[in-house]
């Protein structure tokens, strides 16, 4: 058991972890962060995505110890001062159905929009293609990301 310190959603959190614990498991079981989900446990589905130092990663494939002194952002952090523009577009357009994949997709969309304020459809598809969704048929989600960018350009 080792004590690690992470910057989680802007707050310093200290937690004791074993070497074999994944970041996903520590977030969910020791830090009360449940938006990242365990959909496949092998990096295929993207439901466990979080931002690690600004980059989206599969938290099921990261050992918690690797994140000592690193910065982690989850959808709880993204939403803490109200929904972002892309989240609002997703809400208004009923982009999600069961919502289980939503946190992962919001992480991917957030990463995309941080690096590219006006992505085209191909770039949006590329950014979201690591997140599986079984309900939506993706088109409403892609549409919502596009829509949020459009609003941006009007400002």
């Amino acid at each position: 058991m080792k004590k690690i310190s992470i910057n989680l959603n802007g707050e310093t959190r200290v937690v004791h972890v074993e070497p074999e614990e994944t970041l996903l498991s520590v977030l969910r079981n020791k830090l009360g962060i449940t938006s990242p989900k365990c959909g496949c446990d092998r990096g295929d589905c993207g439901a466990c995505a979080v931002l690690l130092n600004g980059r989206s990663v599969r938290s099921c494939l990261v050992l918690a110890m690797e994140t000592d002194s690193q910065k982690i952002v989850t959808v709880e952090g993204i939403s803490q001062n109200g929904l972002t523009q892309v989240q609002n577009a997703m809400l208004d357009m009923n982009a999600f159905q069961c919502g289980y994949c939503a946190p992962g997709i919001i992480i991917s969309a957030t990463e995309l929009l941080e690096n590219n304020s006006n992505p085209n459809l191909e770039e949006i598809k590329e950014a979201l293609s690591g997140n599986l969704c079984r309900c939506s048929g993706y088109l409403p989600i892609l549409e919502a990301v596009k829509e949020s960018v459009k609003e941006d350009s009007h400002e």
């Binding site: 995505a49 989206s56 990663v57 990261v62 991917s108 990463e111 690591g130 997140n131």
Partner: peptide, 9 residues
């Protein structure tokens, strides 16, 4: 290779 979330690591 895979997807962005994998390529980032």
């Amino acid at each position: 290779v895979a997807s962005i979330g994998i390529r980032n690591r």
